[in-house]
Simulated scan of single mutants.
Amino acid sequence: MEKFKEHSVEHSTDDDLIARGIEHAIEEQRQIDHGVARIIASQLHSGQRSALYEFTSTGSISRPDLFFDELGVDYKTLDDEARWNIDALMVYALGRIQDQDTDPKQDWSRLWGESERHDDRCAACMEHLANPHAIGCPLEYAEEY
């Protein structure tokens, strides 16, 4: 985990945002955030027909088999940091699939890095607390969240 701390905070690159996002997820024992997953996929997709491109553009995981196949391409030849990124994205995607949350996401294009980590947003659907929960949000009918 120390290797993630060497990234700059002042002038964040996508690699810095990914590293910090993975570091925070490890520290907090959770999956990476939506925005971090989007950055990782944006670095790995092979073009507009790929499942990773579809995910980067819309947040959809409509073709899980292809999504995971694309993540596994050349995995063994990659450096440790690239494998960490892929592993984090795989865990994230598996969580979404397990939750049957594979549809496109509203306002997906606004997410980048951990920008969606705000106390004023629902942790499950990312809707602002002043708005109703997104359709299908598990906290939609909860009294407190």
Rank of each mutant, 00 (worst) to 15 (best):
S12F: 08
E143G: 12
L139Q: 10
F4E: 06
D107L: 06
I97Y: 00
R38F: 06
P132Q: 12
H118S: 15
C137T: 06
S115Q: 11
E54P: 01
V91P: 01
D16G: 07
K5D: 13
P132C: 10
E28I: 08
K5E: 14
E114S: 09
A123R: 06
Y141Q: 10
A124T: 04
P138W: 07
T77L: 14
S50Q: 12
S60I: 05
Y53W: 15
P104A: 10
D69L: 11
D65A: 13
P138M: 08
G72L: 08
Y145T: 12
L94S: 08
L111M: 10
A19Q: 03
Y53M: 07
E70W: 04
D65C: 08
N85C: 14
W112S: 01
F55R: 00
A37T: 03
Y75H: 11
L129E: 02
V9N: 12
D33S: 15
D101W: 00
K76D: 15
E27Y: 09
L66V: 14
Q43A: 10
A123G: 09
D103S: 11
S57G: 08
I39G: 02
E28S: 14
I97L: 07
R30L: 09
I86S: 00
R83G: 03
I61A: 03
H11S: 12
A88Y: 01
R38H: 09
S57A: 15
P138R: 14
T77C: 13
A19G: 06
C137E: 05
G113A: 04
L66G: 06
D119P: 04
A142Q: 14
L89T: 00
T13W: 04
P132V: 10
E23A: 08
C137L: 04
T13C: 11
D33G: 12
A41H: 02
L89N: 00
F4P: 03
K3F: 11
E127T: 05
E81K: 07
L129G: 03
H45E: 13
E23G: 05
H133D: 00
M1E: 13
V73L: 13
A134C: 08
I86A: 01
E54I: 10
G95C: 07
V9W: 10
E114F: 03
T102F: 04
V73A: 13
R38V: 02
Y53L: 06
E114C: 06
S115M: 10
